[in-house]
Write a protein that binds this DNA or RNA. Structure first.
Length: 428
DNA sequence: TCATATT
């Protein structure tokens, strides 16, 4: 740990890049060699699955300076496709990296009538101010806080240490608060926390005025650790103390159920106050002991013609059952498991409220589901209404296509087809 | 409407 700190301190200039679309079979040495053609690179770290240690198809690249990092980005981002990848390399500053390089400070407890000039006068003692912004409301009224950037981290640190909690501005009864501005991640965490506490009607301090909030009793801020992640500080405890349910898979499905009078049963959508959420998982194997050929289900379990005429409203068995995907028999914990050729399905027009679990439940009746993934918007968490289901056999996939393609689920008809092959393999 | 992933 002391070593980690030493390394970080001596490498303040270095910049970490995140690289996506890295073929899983490539080694760190190979990647290092490749990136060195374009920029100075100190290190490549492949990002691996925590449990399987397999590459997750992306890596970090450490460059000695911002200049070198930019060279790598400009030469590679969207510019080259590695053999085996389906789309070009994605090369960007890693999360928090830009913010780390900005040395941005938050200043709280400013008097309401303070001007930019007043703030500059005080803070310019510690370095050149590159950017200063006093937060104002609709009528130009100050919100009592500001953001400020210096040219170097040392200047920012000097100002922070000299002023935070120690300097009282004219017209104010309390000292200024100076801390490192929240990173994007911290803001996200706080937004999420706010949404959650509002949903459960618990009053929370987040709704208070920003400057009051920052100035709450335990105003001390731990030294910046150089990585953009702060140890749980003043509001850290609150941010991470989520009700247990919200840490469970299916959390992202806690969008308010939209009732559109469709065929979906509300109890298929996990919800915090639904007892049905706790129904014990029924595993595929447990339900059908001894049956290993997916086709075997067709006779007994599934109506042969789900799409025909008026009887089309009766869903195939399993769509409405409560079983959830059993941990023992289903997707591996981390990512997408790809089945053998011909066993992977692409599905679109999935009902908005379906998550991975509902998708798996709907398709598990045709065979062993290795993975089921509904794609969601990265930032809003809203379903994009398409996804993938992988089986362990092409036969299962075929039977799912014949039974489910065109099947009316919610407002639209499902489209179920074999997943496209990845074919575009260009050398670099 | 075809696996976007942050040790």
């Amino acid at each position: 740990m002391a070593e980690e700190k030493k390394e970080r301190d001596s490498n303040e200039e270095s910049v970490k890049l995140f690289v996506g679309q890295v073929p899983k079979h490539m080694t760190e040495a190979q990647l290092l060699t490749m990136f060195k053609e374009f920029a100075l690179v100190d290190e490549v770290n492949i990002i691996k699955d925590k449990t399987t240690r397999a590459s997750r198809g992306c890596c970090f690249v450490i460059c000695p300076s911002r200049q070198e990092a930019d060279k790598a980005v400009n030469a590679c981002h969207n510019k080259k496709t590695l053999p085996g990848a389906s789309s070009p390399l994605q090369v960007k500053y890693a999360d928090g990296e830009l913010e780390r390089l900005e040395h941005k400070l938050f200043i709280g407890m400013l008097p309401k009538n303070v001007s930019e000039t007043d703030v500059s006068a005080l803070f310019s003692d510690y370095g050149n101010i590159k950017d200063l912004q006093i937060l104002r409301g609709s009528q130009q009224t100050s919100k009592g806080c500001a953001f400020l950037k210096y040219e170097t981290k040392e200047q920012a640190l000097a100002a922070l240490e000299a002023i935070n909690g120690k300097h009282r501005m004219e017209g104010s009864t309390v000292p200024l608060v100076v801390k490192w501005a929240d990173t994007e991640k911290e803001r996200q965490a706080r937004r999420a926390q706010k949404a959650l506490s509002q949903a459960s009607n618990v009053p929370n301090t987040d709704s208070q005025h920003p400057s009051l909030f920052a100035a709450l009793p335990m105003g001390y801020v731990p030294p910046y650790n150089g990585y953009g992640y702060q140890a749980p500080g003043p509001y850290g405890l609150m941010s991470y103390r989520l009700p247990p349910m919200q840490n469970q898979p299916g959390f992202h499905n806690m969008i308010p159920p939209i009732n559109q009078g469709n065929a979906l049963r509300p109890d298929l959508v996990p919800s915090m106050n639904s007892r049905n959420y706790h129904v014990p998982p029924t595993s595929y194997i447990g339900s059908y002991p001894g049956l290993h050929h997916p086709m075997a289900y067709h006779g007994g379990m599934v109506s042969p013609r789900p799409l025909s005429g008026s009887s089309g409203s009766v869903p195939p068995a399993g769509v409405n059952n409560h079983s959830t995907t059993s941990p023992g028999t289903s997707r591996s914990p981390g990512g997408q498991v790809e089945g053998p050729p011909g066993a992977n399905l692409f599905i679109c027009h999935i009902p908005q409220e379906f998550g991975d679990e509902e998708l798996a439940n709907t398709f598990q009746q045709f065979g062993r589901v290795l993975s089921a993934k509904v794609f969601v918007d990265k930032t809003t968490g809203v379903s994009k209404c398409f996804g993938f289901v992988s089986y362990d056999s092409p036969e299962a996939a075929q039977s799912a296509i014949s039974m489910m393609n065109g099947y009316q689920l919610g407002g639209k008809k499902l489209k179920v087809q074999l997943k496209r092959d990845k074919q575009n393999n260009k050398p670099y």
